[in-house]
Design a protein around this nucleic acid. Sequence first.
DNA 1: TATGAATGAGGATTCATTCAT
DNA 2: GATGAATGAATCCTCATTCAT
Lengths: 239, 239, 239, 239
Amino acid sequence: MKTAPHFQGAAPAQPANPTPLIHARLRRKEARPLELLDAALALFVEHGFAATRIEDVAARAGVSKGTLYLYFPSKEELLKEVIRHKVVNQIAEGMDVIRQFEGSAAELFAVMIRLWWERIGETPAGGIVKLMMCEVRNFPEIAQFYVDEVIAPSNRMMAQMVQRGVASGEFRPVDVQRVVSALVGPLVFLAMNKHSLGACSVGHLLDAKSVIEAQIDLALNGLLAPSLHPPHKTPKGKQ
Amino acid sequence: MKTAPHFQGAAPAQPANPTPLIHARLRRKEARPLELLDAALALFVEHGFAATRIEDVAARAGVSKGTLYLYFPSKEELLKEVIRHKVVNQIAEGMDVIRQFEGSAAELFAVMIRLWWERIGETPAGGIVKLMMCEVRNFPEIAQFYVDEVIAPSNRMMAQMVQRGVASGEFRPVDVQRVVSALVGPLVFLAMNKHSLGACSVGHLLDAKSVIEAQIDLALNGLLAPSLHPPHKTPKGKQ
Amino acid sequence: MKTAPHFQGAAPAQPANPTPLIHARLRRKEARPLELLDAALALFVEHGFAATRIEDVAARAGVSKGTLYLYFPSKEELLKEVIRHKVVNQIAEGMDVIRQFEGSAAELFAVMIRLWWERIGETPAGGIVKLMMCEVRNFPEIAQFYVDEVIAPSNRMMAQMVQRGVASGEFRPVDVQRVVSALVGPLVFLAMNKHSLGACSVGHLLDAKSVIEAQIDLALNGLLAPSLHPPHKTPKGKQ
Amino acid sequence: MKTAPHFQGAAPAQPANPTPLIHARLRRKEARPLELLDAALALFVEHGFAATRIEDVAARAGVSKGTLYLYFPSKEELLKEVIRHKVVNQIAEGMDVIRQFEGSAAELFAVMIRLWWERIGETPAGGIVKLMMCEVRNFPEIAQFYVDEVIAPSNRMMAQMVQRGVASGEFRPVDVQRVVSALVGPLVFLAMNKHSLGACSVGHLLDAKSVIEAQIDLALNGLLAPSLHPPHKTPKGKQ
DNA sequence: TATGAATGAGGATTCATTCAT
DNA sequence: GATGAATGAATCCTCATTCAT
């Protein structure tokens, strides 16, 4: 049950080695599990866990089947490691950026929604969202982990954001939890769709960015206190 | 594990049995494919297509493997038939009700969202939504079918609904297609969640009905023309 | 283990009922096993025993699977019955005609070879030959039966025929048994070929009748006593 | 049940192992397909294609089912490869020897018939003959292949041989093609019989070599020009 | 008798996992 | 460490056989 060291797994461009004295061989050795996790994530997301062959994961990472088993004791453990590693690394990373933002509630709101898409929805982390939706029921232990590590913190953050606007009077008084759920829905849907119908040749129906803008527009108009209406304009050029 | 011969769900119209003591065998033979489709839907939704064993589908329908193959030539055809049968029947059925609605755009909007959940989201048809999201990439022909038969008609209908409000001046002028996508997102998300995390023991985080109400509230406030604000009140006792 | 009454199984045209008072129903009942045997023979010859489906045999005989099992307790017994019945009826019947022939040794020789082809080789009995060649090793008990009932009598008859010519001085003195084997070979080969390559679209390479004539010509020229050479002319028009 | 790594039969030329202790694994890997083809040939010939279990083929080659599928993608492809490999190697090999012969037409004739038996009829290639006769109708593509690669070349060569005798006046003028067919018949029959009735305990009726001699005697006497009669004596001790 | 729906043992094929090199 | 040949349990699917009607 090895856990890989912290590492920016999915980054396509690898900056020059910060500690040049370490052998390239060693770096490769450390990177291997991450390449395997990337490969596994991509294939699990595309085909589902059961329909993905270990051999294809290995091949995509450029190693042989046997090598994969040097790092992961079974297919199921590989899946768990993918989730654990990608969730903590990628999701958390996305969240970090979001968490630091300051500004008005409405601005924060719009920025956060956009950032969520850029940092999570359209990155490999979005694949995790689909993978979880499709596989949790086959791996109940993972569900708890996912709820604790991802869902709950996300919800708390979103809730804080809405709550801040309500407290300041910027937003109408609303049931924060339910509004959060209503806001999260389309984001999760967009992320899933990207790896589902959106990845099929027939699926170029949704332009995620413009749907995001429509949702921001709709939600902000729905949230803002009556006295402030209509302060949030439909973005230019978007009809 | 036998399910009742009086099948539930999918048949468009079942006349009262004209000859009450006609062969039980014959009645079974007619009911069998529907029972198998129900069983397949349930298991495909729960475990995914690849991880579901044909033998388990048959057992859930109270028959043996061999019997399943009397009605469906292969596992893949079974999946296709599940999609075709459940989609056309359930989706079309829900749509019918909606099409006949008369009233203000805002009322229609609220009714439609609630009806979608009652007729599709929380029925077995909701399982189709999750199933499709998880499996389309492995079955490109099904993707085309699903887009043509489900996504496109649904979108068209939602778009008409929004467009009616915009045309009458009840709603703000918005990009209808994008708003529709933003509206569909949380509904689809709710349906998927019901069969995903929501079905795990840790997943009782979302109360679908109240999220639906929150979304209606949010979206109507976001859609209504400024001059009418705030005409749509947060429903009593929901905040 | 019912055995069917003597009957001209394969004849497409059924002559007027010789005993008109017997119900057509009854005749049908008696004929059914024969229709099944005919169907089984045809399919076993075409596809082999293992690759033939019981259901196809029944369908070819115009009855259902269940009906076949009213007459034959298993697929293997059906095969045995096909062989027993077709061998005794068809082969023996062909032999009868041949056995009665009288004439000079050379004439008898030529006539018998031609008759063998007409009465056995190109009739359904020829199918038995192929069936036996292909399946005996899987059914060793049948081998003894076939040797006793078909091979040995045929060989004896052919041997008598050759021996008669040798004894009368018409033929050279030869090892009768070996010559018989050398004569039987191409006949059996022709019969098998008819149901093998000859039945494929690519197999129109052999015209059985002219090969037969070539063999008669060759063998007679090879058998006749030196003083009589060349008494047996190459048939007219055959070059 | 392992067969020796020094494979028998099919390889055109096997150089002495240059590095005697090179990986046994590697040597196995190269020998494996040949051992599997040998095993498949033996079992297909004995039981027929449909009645042979893949697992038994693998076991006879000393490996497991799974291993067979490393080398052949399906049972049907295995059959095709058996045909292709055994046919081109064994048939071609026999043909080579024959092609180089010099001498009188009668001598060539006798030598060729005997050689055919020694090089093809009584070797594993003889099994191919039976296999083809029994299975071609189920595999039309193979029929074409077999006609093009085996039947046609063989016939052409036999025809040349007879034609040479006719042209030189050694043989009577005969219809060469038909005589060839009449000559091929008993050879093919002997080969098939060896794997059919001849392989059953009751089937020791034919001594192939002496039948061959009888056929040579018979055919040569039948072919030689009248003026030369009787130049070809029945071989000593064979009558 | 005749039917054909139902069964489940059997066989082809796949693929996660092991292990000798 | 790395490989990939080998394994065999697991799964899809077929079809001989049974049996209620």
